[in-house]
Amino acid sequence: MTTTTPPAITTATDEPPVRKVRRAFSSPLASVAVVILAVLWTVPVLGLFVTSLRPKADVASSGWWTVFSHPHFTLSNYNTVLFKGGYNVNSGLAPYIVNSLAITIPATIIPIILASMAAYVLAWVRFKGSDAIFFTIFALQVVPLQMSLVPLLQLYSGGAHIGGITVIPALHLHGSLAEVWLSHTMFSLPLAVFLLHNFISQLPESVIEAARVDGASHLRVYRSIVLPLSMPAIASFAIFQFLWVWNDLLVSLTFAAKTTAAQPLTAQLQQLTGSFGSHLELLTAGAFVSIIIPMIVFFSLQRYFVKGMLAGSVKG
């Protein structure tokens, strides 16, 4: 889809005087402030991490910071989370990571593409009623998704497997996973349209006008100008959509958990906490296992923010 590389509206030109101006803000004081904030934000995560390395009895009887004076660590929580526990499969947690990916990847890509198309039309191909549609979509963010579970289940169990009703016929081949993708897509669309519309509507008018004057169709403008230019915005939304779906339990539990074979990581990690929530120490280890892939996604999408990010949001 994105064969064209983003035409660099490189506002961040590397002229020495400008850099000097910017560097003025990053005084040593600012560095200290950033370090303090980063430390403040990290302490709880550190606590989570240290807790995940402690035996259960210690967790309940002494503070995690005491390990720095009396080190007593164990990898058994990780051992249990990764390889033991009731996984019904011999290979430990790995199949459930695959399940999570199988749920998360389509549930991230599909809404982003759909939302960016809608956002483009609502921002640039306006028509009578387009504002009303946009504001309705915006307001729909507030509908608690819990309210949608029952009606959607009724729809799916009543016949969403028919190719005719699904917009994308290929999906119905995959049974319940398609239900999860569709549901996540529906729930994420309002925010996705809202955020992307905000960025797309601020793309420089001149660029789009120029293309239109050259005879490009709207769909072509979307594909070869709007989409590449809004990559940074798309990347930032993608990170969060990925995170939300990755950490979701409710939607996948409702639509995918009829058999353990299709369950995501979150559902399996929950299993580990025990019937009466007796193994919270395993949950801390599980939290760290499940954080790894979102962090990879964050770092790999980071580069989109570094240079020329949101170049388009500058008014033309």
Binding site: V150, L153, S157, L253, T254, A257, K258, T273, S275
Partner: peptide, 23 residues
């Protein structure tokens, strides 16, 4: 027998039953 367990069983079961996809 395909068993699924959940912490949220008490709230999930009514949802699934009402949604017509009870276990």
């Amino acid at each position: 027998i395909s068993y699924t367990g959940s912490n949220d069983f008490e709230s999930q079961l009514p949802v699934q039953v009402q949604g017509g996809s009870a276990p």
